[in-house]
Design a protein around this nucleic acid. Structure first.
Length: 732
DNA sequence: ATAAAACGATTTTTT
DNA sequence: ATCGTTTTAT
């Protein structure tokens, strides 16, 4: 057996991990250390050297993207089509199990997957159905509560209210929501995992079957597993099947949604006879960047321990810019970025701007638009989550199954056809009272003439449309079904008559849905025997449609630090480094959460390949008011010799808000340079004070003897000073 | 049924 | 400030 292609491209540490014995193994893989490569080569090693069939391997990831990449790379390395191999996300694989064993799992054969939006909508109806005030019991909170319970593996019966009324009510809501899901055959994301875990727990025969089938289990991003995913893995592994887990405790940034770093920390304890490997050689970043990352993360406690290194150059220093405010920050980034594009052979999509919260993208967008810099903002709604797409999918579902209540409610009056809230409420109540689906209830209501003629006609018209649609599409192929639905339902016409940009893009999205349907090939074993439309709808629920829709060529990439995990860029701007923003004020108090923020910073730093530029703003407008946050504590955790401070003072012009409505003055606090007449002091300029030291002028008000200036001092913080007494000296 | 006004939330996000 | 949601008014 020629193992050259499998082992040759690897370094020593990678090779040891890839070729380790078939015992439980944990690979601590630092950022940029070849994590995916090890996973891929391990699979190849198992198949080619150990002689394991690819179909005896289970490989689990968190995202569809990671799963697809892994599959493609394994196929390339093995030069083999592995379509039937069990490689996918936790949710995807759980779903596959539940489809195969729907009866044993007490599900309907036609169970549908609820996405988070669907879940909230259903929850709202459940809460209202219980006669509760849905402003007092927000559906979103209830969903959050239930999802976390499910992620801990808890059912209503396992929970105690501890005498807490709120808790007791939430448990009741959980039970009612679950009941509604069971009745209508709906499964939310958390339920996919919990249900498949329960299936394996309660059916030793099924568990044994899969334990025999999967002789090897590989897991990516192990530090992100939550309680239930961990239990699920442990159960499937049993006593005999080794788990090969890859992860990085320093990149655990999803604790807030249930991920448990302990899972990686306790691996050796929980999996007897396991081996530990560490990948510390980094192939991505310069020495400077790695030193910064190492120093920063060193401030965390209880780490498994790891120090990234490279045999490459030190590279450029890390630049740090102390901006006057967020606009100045954005302008600085734009300047720096343009300069980099001009002086290197870099492309725009080699550049990323990383921030802690989505709201920060705005200022950058404004500046980039004004300077004609193409950019792309990550995040926001994905393709299959867009309202118009969900509407179209609801039509498809309803045409397929008129008893699908959520779809019925969603589109009964979209586009508007004269079926108002009163009519819908009547149908809903009637359905509830007589234990009918909304469609059945609507039929009865029409027969019994409970409605006024106008509403009755509108409802009848809608139902005729649906009957007609479902008849018409039955003989068509998938993409034609989709096309027919979006046309005949009136969705395209509805959005088409609106000339706005938004409406235009909605029409384009609907057309893109037809394209997506055309390109949807039922090659997945999972979808075998399923009607193409059902398969497509499932695909839509499980895959948010990342690649769908608009194309992006050579744009500067704007995204949150969370979204940046797993990516890399030659030039990275890490912006908004202020205490209260990053680390977030929500996390600053608790040590555990602060450490997670630090890991997030670590993730951000290690995204950069050649150059890292950091910045913070002395003044930042948040939630409509100005905040003066101190520079992030993380900055002081990076050795100063790695950092070069840039402060092109000449560039700081009057950074004031040019609101589109100049008359909008809040408390008369708009910049008023009158106060500064003849003083030489400028907003944005630097001044020195005998006691407070040096600082930057942020604002001023009043005139004459009562003139006051707002100064942000480097060491003493921000203060309002009366000009006549302060004796400020202007620093040139 | 549509538009205006009031209200509320506002870290991070995949499936 | 701003965005999405819900209520209220036309």
């Amino acid at each position: 057996m020629d193992v050259t292609p499998i082992l040759d491209p690897l370094n020593e540490a990678q090779r040891e991990a890839v070729s380790c014995d078939t015992v439980p193994a944990l690979v601590i893989a630092g950022a940029g250390s070849g994590k995916t490569r090890v996973l891929v080569h391990r699979i190849a090693w198992l198949c080619e050297v150990v002689g394991v069939s690819p179909f005896s391997i289970l490989a689990v990831t968190f995202t569809n993207k990671a799963a697809a990449e892994m599959r493609a790379r394994v196929e390339e390395l093995l030069n083999n089509n592995l379509a039937g191999m069990w490689m996918g996300t936790f949710h995807g694989i759980s779903h596959r199990l539940l489809r195969a064993h729907w009866q044993e799992a007490n599900l309907k054969q036609s169970f549908q997957i609820l996405d988070s939006g669907d879940q909230i909508r259903l929850m709202k109806r459940v809460i209202q159905g219980m006669g509760l005030d849905d402003t007092k019991w927000p559906a979103k909170n209830a969903c959050w509560f239930i999802n976390s319970q499910k992620e801990e593996g808890l059912r209503p019966k396992d929970m105690s209210d501890n005498g807490d009324i709120t808790q007791r009510q939430l448990i009741k809501i959980y039970a009612a929501y679950q009941e509604a899901c069971e009745q209508t055959g709906l499964v939310d994301f958390a339920e996919l995992l919990l249900r498949s875990l329960e299936l394996l727990k309660h059916r030793p025969d099924i568990l044994a079957h899969y334990q025999t089938k999967f002789r090897h289990i590989l897991v990516d991003e192990f530090q992100d597993t939550n309680s239930i995913q961990y239990q699920w893995l442990k159960l499937l592994a049993g006593e005999q099947n080794p788990i090969f887990a890859v992860g990085d405790d320093d990149q655990s940034i999803y604790g807030w949604r249930g991920a448990r770093v302990e899972n990686i920390q306790n691996f050796e304890r929980d999996f007897k006879g396991s081996q530990l490997f560490k990948l510390e050689q980094n192939y991505r970043s310069t020495n400077t960047i790695l030193s910064a990352a190492n120093s920063l993360i060193d401030n965390n406690h209880g780490r498994m321990g790891k120090k990234l290194w490279t045999d490459g150059d030190d590279g450029e220093p890390i630049y740090l810019y102390a901006s006057f405010n967020e606009q100045d920050e954005a302008r600085f980034v734009a300047d720096k970025l343009k300069h980099w594009l001009d002086t290197t052979s870099g492309r725009r999509d080699d550049v990323a701007i990383l921030y802690r919260s989505n709201a920060q993208s705005r200022v950058f967008e404004e500046v980039f638009i004004s300077q004609s810099i193409p950019y792309r903002v990550y995040g926001g709604l994905r393709f299959f989550e867009r309202a118009e797409i969900k509407d179209a999918l609801a039509y498809l579902r309803l045409a397929k199954n008129v008893d699908d209540n959520p779809s019925f409610e969603r589109i009964v009056n979209v586009p508007t056809r004269g079926i108002g809230q009163r009519t819908v409420a009547l149908v809903r109540d009637f359905a509830k009272e007589h234990q009918l689906t909304m469609w059945q209830a609507a039929e009865k209501i029409l027969q019994s003439s409970l409605l006024a003629a106008r509403a009755s006609n509108a409802l009848a018209q809608f139902m005729n449309l649906m009957v007609k649609l479902s008849k018409e599409i039955s003989e068509l192929e998938l993409s034609e079904q989709v096309d027919h639905i979006i046309q005949t339902s009136g969705l395209v016409a509805h959005h088409g008559k609106d000339a706005s940009e938004k409406a235009k893009s909605r029409v384009e999205n609907l057309e893109e849905l037809v394209v997506a349907a055309r390109g949807f090939v039922v090659d997945n074993e999972l979808y075998e025997g399923m009607p193409p439309l059902d398969a497509f709808l499932t695909h839509a629920a499980l895959e948010a449609g990342e690649g769908q829709g608009a194309k992006w060529d050579d744009c500067v990439q704007l995204m949150t630090l969370h979204a940046a995990k797993g990516l890399e860029f030659p030039l990275v701007f890490l912006v908004g480094l202020e205490d209260g923003l990053f680390p977030s004020s929500m996390s600053m108090e608790e040590p555990g959460r602060l450490e997670e923020e630090r890991r997030l910073c670590y993730v951000g730093i290690t995204r950069a390949r050649k150059q890292l530029v950091m910045s913070y703003a002395e003044s930042r407008r948040q939630y409509g008011s100005d905040n003066y946050n101190p520079p992030s504590r993380f900055l002081s955790e990076i050795p100063s010799e790695l950092i070069a401070e840039v402060r092109p003072r000449a560039k700081v012009t009057q950074p004031r808000y040019q609101s589109s409505a100049p008359s909008m003055m809040i408390n008369g606090s708009r910049a008023n340079s009158e106060a500064l007449n003849d003083t030489g002091i400028k907003i944005g300029g630097r001044v020195a004070h005998a006691k407070f030291g040096e600082g930057v002028v942020l604002d001023c008000e009043g005139k004459g003897n009562s003139a006051r200036v707002h100064v942000h001092f480097e060491s003493a913080g921000s203060k309002w000073l009366v000009l006549a007494y302060a004796n400020l000296n202007v620093i040139a």
